[in-house]
Design a binder for these strands. Structure first.
Length: 475
DNA sequence: AGCACA
C-alpha cells in the first residue's frame, strides 16, 4: 500500500507534457516512424529513439502541449492501440518537459569526416595513404591530421553484432590506445562523406596501400562538426587539394629523402645496415673491442667508428646487411653491457650505409680491410678514459671506477637515465673487488649472459675474451 | 511494458 504510493513513476495519470514517453517499441525504431505516429496530432519538433537498456523506448516532443494531450486522449479512448510496425506501443506523458537531445556532431551528417586510425602502427599511416583511401568516394578537398592523447580506450562491443566481431576487425580487446591518430577529411558534400563513412567505418586500410611491415590499421569514422577545414600550408600534417598553389611548409621539405613520412608528419626511421649506438650511464669504459664483441654476436661486423657526442660516447657499427642490423638492434636496444645498469645501449639506425674508415685505431676500425694500417702504438694500449668532466686518468692496469659523485656529474647522452627505473641495483660500492684488476677494461661481474640476453659468446670466467685485448681482425 | 545519460 505504502509501496504503491511511494512509486510516483508508476502512477496511472501524469501531469501533461508536450513530451510523450513511448515504450514497447520495435527494435531500432526510427525517427521517421515516430514522426509518422505523432504527425496526425500536431507538429513533432523532436524525437529520441532507441532509449533504455532494451532500446525499445522513445520520446516524442510536440510543438504544443495541446497536441500531446490530443494524442494521449485519442489513444486513451481508441479501440485501436498506437502501433509501430504492427506492434502495440504504450504512450504516456513524459516526466520531462523537453527532449534533451545529446546528439553530438558525430551523429549529424556533414561533409567532413573525423577519422580515427586504430592499430599499433597507426602513426605510420601517411596522409597520402589516407588521401588515396578516401579519394575512392569522391574528390577529397582537404585533409588535416593530428594526434590526440585519449587515455585508455575501452572498446564497447556489447552492441556489435557477432558477424562484426568475427569478420576480422583488428581491434583487440587487449589493445589500449594511449594516443589517437586522427584525421579530418573534407568532401564537397555530406552525401559523399556519408558514402565514404558507410563503406570505410570499421574497415582496415588495405595492406597493399601500407608499407609491408605495418600491422593492420582500422578506420573509425564519425562526422565532424567542421564544414571547411583551414589549411595554411601543404605539409605532412595537412593538405589542401583544391589549392595546388598553397605554399609548402618548410617542415615538409626533406632533402635527404632518407625518411619516410608517417602519420602526422612523423619521421619514420628507416632500417639500415649501420647502427648508431649510444652508451648511457657509462661508468666503465666501453672500448671498440668491447663493442665488437657485443655486436659481433649477431653477425660479422665490417666496421666500427666511435666518437664523442653530447658528452657521451657513440659508435657506428656496420654490418654487411640490414637484416643482421635489425636483429642486433632488437636484441640489444636498452640492454646494458655491464651488470647494474651500467653502459646501457641505445640503438638507432644510422643514415650511413658504408662507413669510411681512414685508419685503424682505438676509435675506428675496418675489419674488412687487412691492408689498412693499424696503429699498434695506440691499439689496445691505454684504457679509454671516460669522457666528461671527470679528470680521473687511467694508467695501465690501475683501473678504478669513478666515484659516485663523479658519476653523478657525468653528462648523459641526452636521454633520461632509466637504469634505476629498470630495477637496476644501485651503483657498486667504491671498494670494488679488484680480483680482475689485471683487465683494465672490464669491471667486476662483467657481461653475464643475462645482461645481454642470448648473445654473449665465448664468455669465460676470467672475464674478457682474448679478442678484446687484441682482436683477431687487427693487423 | 514504466523516462534518456554525457
Amino acid at each position: 500500500m505504502a509501496s504503491v504510493s511511494s512509486q510516483p513513476q508508476f502512477r496511472y495519470t501524469q501531469p501533461p507534457s508536450k513530451v510523450l514517453h513511448l515504450r514497447n517499441l520495435p527494435w531500432e525504431c526510427t525517427e521517421e516512424e515516430l514522426i509518422e505516429l505523432g504527425k496526425p496530432f500536431g507538429k513533432v519538433v523532436n524525437t529520441k529513439c532507441n532509449v533504455g537498456a532494451n532500446r525499445n523506448q522513445a520520446f516524442i516532443e510536440f510543438a504544443d502541449l495541446n497536441q500531446a494531450i490530443a494524442m494521449i486522449s485519442y489513444y486513451a479512448s481508441s479501440s485501436e492501440p498506437a502501433q509501430v510496425r504492427g506492434k502495440t506501443v504504450y504512450l504516456q506523458y513524459s516526466n520531462r518537459q523537453e527532449i534533451v537531445n545529446n546528439k553530438t556532431s558525430a551523429d549529424v551528417a556533414g561533409n567532413v569526416l573525423l577519422v580515427t586510425i586504430e592499430g599499433a602502427d597507426a602513426r605510420l599511416v601517411s596522409i597520402d595513404v589516407l588521401h588515396l583511401v578516401f579519394s575512392a568516394f569522391g574528390f577529397v578537398h582537404k585533409i588535416t591530421t593530428f594526434e590526440k592523447t585519449a587515455g585508455f580506450q575501452v572498446y564497447k562491443f556489447n552492441s556489435a553484432p557477432l558477424w562484426f566481431l568475427l569478420m576480422g576487425s583488428s581491434t583487440s580487446k587487449h589493445e589500449f590506445v594511449l594516443y589517437l591518430c586522427q584525421a579530418l577529411v573534407q568532401f564537397s558534400d555530406s552525401e559523399t562523406a556519408s558514402a565514404a563513412k558507410n563503406a570505410l567505418d570499421g574497415r582496415s586500410i588495405p595492406r597493399y596501400l601500407l608499407p609491408e611491415h605495418l600491422g593492420p590499421c582500422t578506420l573509425r569514422i564519425t562526422f565532424s562538426a567542421h564544414t571547411d577545414l583551414s589549411v595554411k600550408f601543404q605539409s605532412h600534417r595537412s593538405r589542401d587539394y583544391t589549392n595546388p598553389y598553397l605554399p609548402v611548409a618548410s617542415s615538409a621539405i626533406d632533402g635527404s629523402g632518407q625518411f619516410s613520412m608517417g602519420f602526422d608528419g612523423r619521421k619514420v626511421e628507416p632500417e639500415s645496415n649501420v647502427l648508431l649506438a649510444s652508451i648511457e650511464n657509462m661508468q666503465y669504459a666501453v672500448t671498440l673491442d668491447v663493442l665488437h664483441m657485443v655486436f659481433s654476436a649477431f653477425g660479422p661486423i665490417q666496421k666500427i667508428a666511435m666518437f664523442d657526442k653530447n658528452g657521451g660516447v657513440q659508435a657506428l657499427i656496420q654490418y654487411p646487411d640490414v637484416q643482421t642490423a635489425v636483429v642486433a638492434k632488437e636484441a640489444l636496444e636498452g640492454h646494458c653491457i655491464y651488470d647494474g645498469g651500467f653502459c646501457k645501449l641505445h640503438i638507432s639506425y644510422s643514415r650511413h650505409t658504408d662507413l669510411s674508415i681512414k685508419v685503424n685505431n682505438d676509435r675506428s676500425r675496418d675489419y674488412t680491410s687487412p691492408v689498412l694500417s693499424s696503429q699498434p702504438s695506440v691499439l689496445g694500449q691505454q684504457p679509454v678514459p671516460i669522457p666528461g668532466p671527470s679528470t680521473h686518468q687511467f694508467e695501465g692496469a690501475q683501473y678504478a671506477p669513478p666515484s659516485d659523485q663523479q658519476v653523478m656529474h657525468q653528462p648523459s647522452a641526452g636521454w633520461a637515465t632509466s637504469a634505476a627505473a629498470a630495477g637496476a641495483p644501485p651503483p657498486p660500492p667504491q671498494s670494488m673487488p679488484m680480483q680482475q684488476h689485471n683487465h683494465p677494461y672490464m669491471p667486476p661481474g662483467t657481461m653475464p649472459p643475462q645482461s645481454v640476453p642470448g648473445m654473449m659468446p665465448m664468455q669465460t670466467q676470467t672475464g674478457l675474451p682474448q679478442s678484446a685485448a687484441m682482436p683477431p681482425y687487427s693487423h
